[in-house]
Design a protein around this nucleic acid. Structure first.
Lengths: 195, 195
DNA sequence: ACCTGAACACCGTTCAAGT
DNA sequence: ACCTGAACACCGTTCAAGT
């Protein structure tokens, strides 16, 4: 049962190990040497797959956006055919994802990656995630559960701001009262946006 | 005009230099050696006034909260005697502060300081800032411009979440359209909370 | 009491050498 | 083509020695 010298899919394993270390050590404690060690490979080999540390972080963030999109899709389906429920549940999906992937959410949004344009795959995933929100708002508009007299761009960004604020304060430990309080805030804010 | 060996108020100068370096280099590029160099002192001398880097960051964050409180107070006074205007303008003060002190706001809220309890002065300033918001919401409630049938804690956290979401997305460059778009979003969101 | 110079440990990054 | 070992540069932190 010897490990082959050529690893096969080392890149994917490094990303997975990166997320694992991230969860244990936090954003500040993420060391490339530990990530490589966890996979059982020299830390220099990482540079065969990522040009630098930021690119590994970008890959972790990209995977985060994919997971976020999936989570929103899941909650939305669960909500059934009622558009208002879909809207509320999609929002909950955003906040819940942040809560259950704190460190990854942190890397996705807290300025650790200064310029997403340098990481096209990450930028694309982030755009798709935003596009998902735009589409949900649009559907709800057409269904008449969101007022249509307001500027749609402003309305979408308003929804995002609400959710992002809750998510951010939550992962910084600024919202006391646990899950139920957070759910209450999320719900009451989102309802304000509906008709 | 020789500098004295004993510096006098080195601590304050180090904080000011820290903010200056922060603005130029960003959070990730803040090096203690550069901060000390800017003041014209050896980098080891920093440890006479701060036990470590995090404590300098905490001092910078604390000063940030003091500035935020002042800014909110200023905007609120400017708004005159109308409570609804006071509410809206206080919110604008929060977002404007974030926009004009991006890096400092980042250190205040983006998890660079993992545990505020380790920095009592910072924790106090942050609490005072939150207390200011609580008080504004309370005043508006009594004046009848904010609905009183809702849970006050939830309502306060909802207001904060909105503002914090806008501020955070703004400093991450996620809100296109510049200042006027940001003002529009802030305004329309805050109005949703009023009666 | 406050500051300096030199040293230490650690980490991201590079590169010639191995398979 | 992919990985390793050793080295380099840089930074936070410490400490004995200076004023």
């Amino acid at each position: 049962m010897k490990k082959p010298y050529h690893h096969g899919n080392l890149k994917e394993e490094l990303i997975a190990a990166g997320i694992s270390v991230l969860k244990k050590e936090g954003t500040g404690g993420l060391r490339l040497r530990e990530v490589a060690g966890l996979v059982g490979v020299s830390h220099a080999s990482l540079y065969r797959h990522f040009t630098n540390k930021e690119e590994l972080l970008a890959a972790i963030a990209e995977q985060g956006f994919r997971g976020l999109i999936e989570n929103v899709e899941l909650y939305k389906k669960r909500a059934g055919s009622n558009f208002k429920s879909q809207f509320i549940e999609s929002g909950r999906a955003y906040v819940d994802f942040a809560a259950s992937h704190k460190e990854q959410f942190h890397i996705m949004f807290s300025g650790i990656i200064p310029d997403r344009k340098k990481h096209p795959a990450l930028a694309l995933a982030a755009e798709e995630s935003f596009g998902q929100l735009v589409q949900i708002v649009e559907e709800c508009r057409e269904a008449g559960v969101i007022p249509s007299h307001r500027d749609r761009k402003v309305h979408t960004l308003a929804a995002w701001s609400m959710l992002h604020g809750i998510a951010t304060l939550l992962i910084e430990g600024q919202i006391p009262g646990g899950r139920s309080r957070t759910r209450a805030i999320t719900r009451s804010l989102l309802i304000l946006l509906t008709v």
